[in-house]
Write a protein that binds this DNA or RNA. Structure first.
Lengths: 346, 346
DNA sequence: AGCGGTTACTGACGCGCGTTACCTGATGCC
DNA sequence: GGCATCAGGTAACGCGCGTCAGTAACCGCT
């Protein structure tokens, strides 16, 4: 138990000024004239007493909480598997720090979705909803009531700004890479069930790329993954049981890891027999065997962007409805020309 | 901008009682007698108006912030590479939720270490320092001033409770597994520079296991890793250049991934030529090729334990100085008997 | 009727701060 | 000299809440 707190009154007494003056100095108000000598006296007194303005009192007196809330709407498995979440958090923290804000993280248990009162109780100035879900009444209410809310991820039909990676374009990048190498029977394993917008968008990118190349989309080439490696293993096994493929686009590196294991077990070599492209570019992708060709998702930048957007919104300024961050294809060794082409080239 | 906030006075007016009564009802105080009818009237009024008690006001009036601070003292690369950090955060959030607390995450930029005022300004009730460093004057000051602080990780000599995994025992588990298989020239690649206690502890476990087996510790078998896969690649390459090995204990799965890549490139097969044991059991370890034998670090439990410890400390109760969580060896396919033994066994 | 005891409730204060409106003495200007 | 201006500073209010010290009404008992 720390000793009695030092208040601005203590500082005022020691500096021989009023509390008001202390407040002016501490907040560095430029519209009030304080002679340098007085300012120095106050600062010296504050320093000597170890004065730290009380945050709640400050907020109560009309200020803001200087806190951004990050709500992780995802399921536990999803969060655990998200290797880039920490990086996104770092980006967000970066944006927050520059604006002298803190970050409060609220991870939701599957059942309960109580996060609105973070905002309504004044604990945070705004909220970032990561992985918004359409079956979320609280969210719609918050937006309707005019609270600053920014979505990380997509949720069409909600009147809140959203920041997301361009999933469609990224997936197209991946599939076009495979097409360019000469592959034609390209499987697709989604990163998650299709109720998740990111999953359906990446699938849409796959479909678009095929159609642009004049290739019919064959549904038996498509299987659903579910965040983790085991789901990728299952999905790839299912596909291999029902058809032959010469390449696969797996919309998540983590899921791709499971798919790679399934390919190995079925006796296929990557990329000699089957080329594989992932999505996300988790830090480990470069060190897999073979190193994984993948689509880089700018995780830190997402956090940074979503943070800046929320800060703008809090400041009452206008924010773009939808910000799509670009992805980049990272070509490594898990993709190569198909068997036929390889034999023909030398 | 949401409309004017609903205060307890509004609720009081609607319910036809005083603000004091509203406060009693909202806080569910059992020591004050409130007839069921009155209680219901108040709750109904609160419900109707959409009343949410103002957190800062509540705190100012003598309450607590109901917030735990998690300070990530690690470097950016370290945080990014820590695949289990999210899981630890989840555990912490779990502990916090059960006690109706929130979690504030403070990620420090390399240079600046301003986190003490989270506590001194009353923004959090307590702090968890993850990856404490001895060159941290703020930390010592906080502890001296009696603020509730709990360390995740070790820092000998500081009078604050700490929660950590039993690194020494875990490393011994790993090395004894290799010894049991018949390996004798066992390399060790640390998870980080040795100034990090976790790194030196794991190295100590390696040393102990060898000494107990009556094997001299050969320094040319030891190399330093540094959090990420590339460092593991470098370390393993260095070792392979100067000697032959038949097994390796790599004190971090992520670093091990780099080491595995280096072994592959040097033409060694795992586990036929060299057995490898990792540490951490990140979610992907089971899906590597070969699946990695490793030491499981109970990430979620660490978060949970450190959270509970901090809550106890905040409540003014006594907390164990040092809590060491046990690890478990997870045997997968990256370890096997040495070449000689394999030939002799059938 | 008188009295202690209980039940149900309330008025007023203080938490620490930001801020508005006001005050005082010195200076400038005609 | 008289008035306006301005620098430098302050007293007092309110933010929304928890809580203490009451108070008024009512009950049971003699």
């Amino acid at each position: 138990m720390p000793g009695r707190r030092v208040t601005s009154a203590d500082v005022a007494a020691l500096a021989g000024v009023s509390r008001t003056t202390v407040s002016f100095v501490m907040n560095g108000r430029r519209d009030v004239k304080i002679p340098a000598t007085t300012r120095r006296r106050v600062l010296a007194a504050a320093q000597e007493l170890g004065y730290h303005p009380n945050a709640p009192a400050r907020q109560l007196a009309g200020g803001a909480s200087q806190t951004l809330g990050l709500v992780l709407r995802q399921s536990p498995e999803q969060v655990a598997g998200d290797a880039l979440l920490v990086e996104t958090l770092r980006g967000l923290a970066l944006a927050a720090r520059d604006a002298d804000h803190r970050v409060l993280v609220e991870t939701l248990a599957p059942g309960d979705g109580r996060y609105a009162n973070l905002l309504r109780s004044g604990r945070t100035d705004g909220l970032i909803i990561s992985g918004p879900r359409s079956d979320d009444p609280e969210l719609a209410d918050l937006v309707r009531d005019g609270f600053p809310v920014v979505l990380q991820g997509s949720m069409p039909g909600l009147a809140a700004p959203s920041v997301d990676v361009d999933n469609v374009a990224g997936a197209r990048l991946a599939v076009e890479h495979l097409l360019g190498l000469g592959h034609r029977r390209i499987a697709c394993i989604t990163n998650a069930p299709l109720v998740y917008t990111a999953a359906s968008e990446r699938l849409a990118g796959y479909t678009q790329a095929l159609q642009l190349a004049g290739i019919a989309v064959d549904r038996i080439l498509i299987a659903e993954g579910g965040f983790d490696a085991p789901s990728g293993h299952r999905a790839m096994s299912t596909i291999l049981e029902r058809t032959e493929i010469d390449a696969a686009f797996v919309a998540s590196d983590v899921v791709a890891l499971g798919a790679l294991a399934a390919l190995r077990e079925a006796g296929y070599t990557v990329p000699a027999d089957v080329s594989v492209v992932g999505f996300d570019d988790i830090p480990l992708s470069a060190y897999l065997d073979p190193p994984l060709t993948t689509v880089r998702l700018p995780a830190r930048e997402i956090g940074l962007t979503v943070g800046l957007a929320l800060l703008e919104k809090i400041a009452g300024r206008l924010v773009a409805d939808r910000t799509l961050l670009p992805t980049h294809l990272i070509v490594r060794a898990s993709t190569g020309p198909p068997r036929g082409a390889a034999e023909a080239s030398p």
